[in-house]
């Protein structure tokens, strides 16, 4: 474990908690894409299959449980909570996210480190995580008005992946056999997807104006 990875995990945890807090306190999911949340629940479900088979550390197991419970809770809130579901704008959240699942799965079948069920599911979860934010970014572009919590949520998600890139660089130089091209390229693609959001987020923060994404 290194400081970049710990900071990345904490930022990732913060992003999920910010979202849960928003939905739980103001009982609203306005501006949140259910599709992105469903994709994240699928990412964790397919990535943490080894939750009970490979014990790595208490931290690792605890964090996996937190991410699984929180991501499925968010999906539950938006779909089934009697008050929250009313604020879900399904007419705007129209990204065909199922079109993301199949290509990621097919790619995982072709490009993976080992052709085993667990490894293919793990690789699938990496590719899916890289594109999971797309429905949310499309929704932000469409609704144009970004409330602070949603902006913070997307910012923290991007920051977590950026910190992970620093973690991979650090591990590459400190651990001789640490080479995971699939993880690195997938993580880089994911971070690049946030780049334009970051740009507008910083612009709005610097000029102290409301965050607006160009149409």
């Amino acid at each position: 474990m290194n400081i970049f990875r710990l900071a990345g995990d904490m930022t990732h945890l913060a992003s999920v908690l910010v979202l849960l807090l928003k939905i739980h306190t103001i009982k609203s999911c306005a501006g949140i894409s259910l599709k992105t949340q469903e994709l994240y629940a699928l990412v964790f479900a397919t990535r943490y299959l080894d939750l009970f088979t490979d014990y790595i550390s208490l931290y690792n197991t605890l964090m996996k449980l937190i991410f699984l419970v929180s991501s499925f809770s968010i999906v539950w809130y938006i779909r089934h909570h009697k008050i929250v579901r009313r604020s879900y704008d399904k007419d705007q959240d129209t990204f065909r996210h199922y079109f993301l699942v199949l290509p990621c799965f097919l790619l995982a079948l072709v490009i993976n480190e080992k052709f085993t069920v667990k490894e293919i599911m793990w690789t699938f979860s990496l590719y899916l995580e890289a594109v999971a934010i797309l429905p949310q970014l499309v929704l932000l572009q469409r609704t144009r008005n970004i409330d602070n919590l949603t902006g913070q949520y997307v910012f923290l998600l991007g920051a977590y992946r950026s910190l992970y890139i620093l973690n991979w660089i650090y591990r590459y130089f400190t651990e001789p056999h640490y080479v995971h091209w699939i993880t690195w390229i997938s993580g880089l693609v994911q971070t690049l997807l946030y780049a334009d959001f970051f740009y507008y987020y910083f612009q709005s923060w610097k000029n102290n104006v409301k965050l607006e994404l160009p149409a």
């Binding site: 990875r5 995990d9 990732h12 080894d50 490979d54 790595i56 690792n60 964090m63 996996k64 991410f67 480190e113 080992k114 490894e119 793990w122 992970y164 973690n167 993880t183």
Partner: peptide, 10 residues
């Protein structure tokens, strides 16, 4: 046991 192919990152 963290053998070679176990992914130790979240």
């Amino acid at each position: 046991s963290v053998d070679g192919d176990v992914h130790d990152e979240l």
